[in-house]
Amino acid sequence: MTALLNNRYAIVAALAVVIAILPFTFPSSYYLRVASLVWVSAFASIGLNVLMGKAGQVSLGHAAFFGIGAYSTAIGPAHLGLPSWASLVIGACVSGLLAYLVGRPILRLKGHYLAIATLGFGVLVALVITTESRWTGGPDGMPVAKLTVFGWRIGTAYAWYWLSGAFLLLGAWIALNLDDTPTGRALLALHDSEVAARVVGIDVAGLKLRAFVIAAVYASIAGSLLAMMNGFVNPDLAGFQHSVELVTMVVLGGLGSIVGSIVGAAVLVVLPQALTVFQEYENLMLGFIIIVAMVFMRDGIVPMASKLIASAR
């Protein structure tokens, strides 16, 4: 089992099997919607995990890139006459470029200073989206055109389930393979000790920047997918609360664990749906579960589980 968690072929194969089998257990297409939300959120949190788990840099403004991706697929077709898929690509490029530009000065900061700087950046992006209502529809948001691929209009819950699932598989595969590239190995060194990494000649600043750009592109694509799936965007997607949610997914699932990001996303998406049975005690329970989970599984769910399994042998 632990070996399984460390073998990237096994992880992707297992994920593919789960994605393929799950729909047959669903009683209604509402479950497809929830599962698609999990795949999309997991996609974003895998990207953020590259930054947080591997490069060891926190971002409290990551929803900004999610929002840029979401709004690009809204604005592209509506105002610029671009096809949706092209808008997704443009959104990802814009996010990557923006991450590259702001990343240089921001990533010089450390620890909590980095946290407040990314938070400030996120607040600014959300503010621009909320204010420039001529383009973005303002605080109430705007509708998003349906995705059309080769004349085939993707609108049903099933279509979106498979599409988001396919994106997640691809995203997980790329992130898992990152470990084997020079960048991935350098990131590992950086995570263990920044000073040591610098001493052995790793370009630390450039490396952090690369992780930041990767994370931004992941978030942007996830945002585009969600926007097209919902057929609607609003500024909440770029807001502080959403940034916090993304960070919570990564940490709850397990820093540095790709599987953890998926589990973390699943927990945070499904939990509010499950907690509706508690009615007005819903938020109380949500907070309680987050505290308990973090106190007893401080490294995150997946690393803790694999440790448990290893020690049970």
Binding site: V244, V247, T248, V251, L252, N283, L284, L286, G287, F288, I289, I290, I291, M294, V295
Partner: peptide, 11 residues
């Protein structure tokens, strides 16, 4: 994250 959980709980 624990303190964020506490904030949600207190609210």
């Amino acid at each position: 994250i624990i303190t964020i959980g506490a904030s949600i709980l207190l609210k």
